[in-house]
């Protein structure tokens, strides 16, 4: 920040909200086409068995789609630095929630004493209670 925090405001003499980048219709249309194509690829990729990589592929494509929406439709590409930081940091902190909960869950199988107390099942964790039976 410069010595005059308000300087950016005073520099605009025009009685407008400021100078705004206006995207071209052509660009919006290209983004839309890309999003639709990527949706097709998502469906296609889900039909092929890549094992555990399917999740990674699906999420990678979803992230690309999300980036397109954020950058172009939400106009973040031309937005101020602080607005970029604010929105992207929400994903960063969300990643922390994912990281630690999943680290806890997936490393429980390292604790051999837990598995001797609880009956391990093939999906690596226990079924604490019988499932509610379906009835007709």
């Amino acid at each position: 920040m410069t010595a005059h925090a308000h300087s950016d405001h005073h520099s605009h003499g025009a009685l407008q909200m400021g100078h705004h980048h206006v995207s071209s219709s052509q660009q919006f249309l290209s983004v839309l086409v890309a999003l639709l194509v990527l949706t097709g690829i998502t469906v296609g990729a889900s039909r092929i068995d890549f094992g555990s990589a399917n999740m990674l592929i699906a999420m990678a494509i979803a992230c690309i789609k999300a980036s397109l929406v954020i950058a172009f439709f939400m106009h973040v590409k031309w937005d101020t630095a602080i607005n970029k930081i604010v929105f992207l940091s929400s994903f960063l902190f969300l990643a922390l929630l994912f990281l630690f909960t999943l680290v806890d869950l997936t490393t429980r199988r390292w604790d051999s004493y837990v598995n001797t107390i609880r009956t391990p099942v093939d999906h690596g964790w226990v079924q604490p209670a019988p499932k509610p039976d379906a009835h007709h």
Binding site: T107, W110, D111
Partner: peptide, 22 residues
Amino acid sequence: SFLVWGHHMFTSGQSTFAMFAF
């Protein structure tokens, strides 16, 4: 403060690794 919440859960059945990290 976003990296330490598991210290409230040391007797809750977290994995040993998670407890160590927290």
